[in-house]
Simulated assay, not measured.
Amino acid sequence: MMNKEVISDKQAISIVVLFMSGTSTMLMLALDAYGDFWLAIIFAVVIALFTTFIFSQLHGIYPEKDFFDMCEACFGKSLGKVICILYIYFIIEEATAVLINTKQFITETTMPETPQTIVIIPLMLLCVWAVKSGIEVIGKWSELSMIIFVSLIIIMGILLIPQMELDNFEPILYKGIKPVLKGTLSAFTFPFGEIVMLAMVFSNFKTKKSAYKVYMLGIFISGIIALMTSITTILVLGIDIATTSYFPVFNAASGIDIGDFIQRLEIIAALIGVIGAFLKNSILLLAVCKGITKIFHLTNYHLMIIPVSLLIINYSNILVDSRMRFVEWNEKAWSYYAVVFELFIPMIMLLIATIKKGAMDSMRKQQ
């Protein structure tokens, strides 16, 4: 059942873009690089394009298999299952972080008196419905929402032009190369390196070359969106305010003021964030359910949707207790071990898969 779900290239690209750009537009990427944030984002996209090559190659070597199947094929059943379990926890942690970010965003910007758990229950119910419907329905929804999503970002950027000040840009490498490298790692691990999670739900592409097209075009478009929103935010707020704000893009959008007529349109930024959060958590929930199904050899991943959803909701209430702790956890912990799952293990997998494929091709020639 799981392997029969097929989506078009356009739908898959839409999923990649919304997954990468959705929740990241609530924040701002590569702020560790200060004024060189744009340089760090470009470097992060370049590294991400390399990872897209890795996953595209793996899809070519193991057609009609998802990332969990590839793990077992590369590392063997025993070690492969152990690595899959580690990845499942990694995804659960990311899904929890997305949920925490979303509920903190909603309560701190628009509904401060509402309990955070009450805010996220409707969102998770929508995610449960989407995952039960399958990747094909998610793909169709993404194709439609992509138009709305990109249009809202463009509209927000245009409306903020009167508030922009070019003096807010700093000289290149004003603080040296070290902040740029740190910002590059931060921007790569969130969100561009998370393409590994999409490889867990993508298995059937239209053609053999579809994986390259979907991943690379999706990352490229996501990179442009990240640059647009980040540059707009810095030009409006300045680097000092952006680095001290929890939700700088939202704060920038609240500054929209054209002729005392068009004002307070931060709802645009809120809508962009909620659309992205819904899609991202749906994909992460689907990935966890598929992974558990593969490990325990279940026949249907639908059985795991409700239990995993409840687990993520509860975990979001205990992982961190404040926005400050959440930001600190992301800055000091996430990037340094996320890069292992997003880059180093996939590189090892491609190396092993290439060697195995070469050995099998040699054996066939000898026969």
Rank of each mutant, 00 (worst) to 15 (best):
F75K: 07
G176K: 13
L285M: 13
F296Y: 15
G255L: 15
I83G: 06
A269V: 01
V327P: 00
P115S: 11
L29M: 13
A30I: 07
V274P: 00
L126M: 15
P191I: 02
G183C: 10
D36W: 09
W141G: 03
I313L: 14
A130F: 15
L125K: 11
G134H: 03
T114Q: 11
I15Q: 12
P63Y: 05
A242C: 05
I292F: 15
S203D: 08
V6A: 08
K140W: 14
M124W: 09
R325I: 01
M111T: 08
G193K: 02
I239F: 12
L285N: 09
L79D: 01
K294A: 12
D257S: 15
V82L: 15
G291S: 07
T23L: 14
M216Y: 04
G193D: 01
L159S: 08
L298N: 07
I88H: 10
K77S: 06
K365Q: 05
I219S: 10
K357G: 03
S322A: 09
I42F: 13
M28P: 01
M26T: 04
L343D: 00
Y215I: 03
S186D: 13
V6K: 15
V128M: 15
I262E: 12
N168G: 10
Y215A: 12
F192M: 06
Y87P: 00
P191Y: 02
R325V: 00
V249D: 07
I268V: 14
I348R: 06
M304A: 11
I135P: 01
K280L: 07
V236L: 14
L235D: 03
L58Q: 04
C84F: 01
I148W: 07
V320P: 00
N3T: 11
W141Y: 11
S24M: 09
K77R: 10
T354C: 05
E94T: 03
T207C: 09
G358R: 14
G60K: 06
M70H: 04
T299Y: 10
T354P: 01
I47H: 01
I118E: 15
K209F: 00
A338L: 04
K208V: 03
Y87I: 01
N317I: 02
S21F: 05
T354L: 11
V340T: 06
N314Y: 11
K290N: 09
M363N: 01
A338V: 03
S8N: 07
S222T: 04
